[in-house]
């Protein structure tokens, strides 16, 4: 990665930060834990930025794969890694603070419950609500729910897609209502280890 012969435009830290929303979505899907996602996203970005600075990643086309692999490694080593070191505060000028924010960075798990129940309540009828609870709460599969509720695939997809779309809208709306001062704060009280905070 980042071969010596590459002469194209150099990767920048801003390029790395543009990967943060997708990185966080991936990590949250893998860990299903908001705090862990925040911590691992931060650690991944640090690792990738250091790699860019050291010239180990140079080609823009290789960036996503590099971010992806680092994220996978971070998740895979979750059980053996030491606890994150705590420092008093994240440096104001940190690159991490300049990342594009995603709605879920602002939420606690309890708030998500309220939002999810609100989305559930918005669904038009009892059948749609039953489908969502069957899928997300009971963990039933799409074929099981289709059979149980006598739905075809299109009907199933429409209801699930509507719920996901409304959840996205609610998350975005809630985030846009957040005070700007929250941006750039260290997630979940954890921050960069001291030897890495110069970013």
């Amino acid at each position: 990665m980042g071969g010596e012969s590459y002469d194209g435009p150099a990767l920048t830290e801003a390029d790395v930060l543009r990967c943060v929303p997708g990185l966080r979505a991936l990590l949250l899907r893998l860990t299903r834990n908001l705090e862990t996602t925040n911590d691992l996203a931060q650690e991944t970005v640090i690792a990738v930025i250091l790699a860019v600075r050291e010239g180990r990643v140079r080609e823009p086309g290789a960036l996503a794969a590099y971010v992806y692999q680092v994220a996978r490694n971070k998740v895979a080593t979750l059980s053996s890694r030491p606890s994150l070191a705590l420092i008093e505060e994240l440096p104001e000028a940190s690159v991490w603070g300049e990342r594009p924010l995603t709605p879920l960075e602002h939420f606690e798990a309890g708030e998500l419950r309220e939002l999810a129940l609100a989305v559930l309540g918005e669904l038009g009828n009892e059948r749609d609500r039953s489908l969502i609870t069957g899928y997300y709460i009971e963990g039933l599969s799409k074929p099981e729910l289709m059979q149980r509720m006598m739905l075809n695939a299109d009907q199933f997809d429409r209801v699930i897609s509507r719920a996901r779309g409304r959840m996205r809208e609610r998350l975005l709306a809630k985030m846009n209502g957040q005070p700007a001062a929250m941006r750039g704060s260290a997630p979940s009280g954890h921050s960069f280890p001291k030897d890495q905070k110069a970013l």
């Binding site: 998500l112 129940l117 997300y136 996901r164 998350l171």
Partner: peptide, 17 residues
């Protein structure tokens, strides 16, 4: 990513109930 997050949010949010 926004839609993947929305799905995760539903799963986490409804998973608590």
């Amino acid at each position: 990513a926004e839609l993947v997050d929305a799905d995760s949010a539903l799963r986490i949010g409804l998973g608590q109930t």
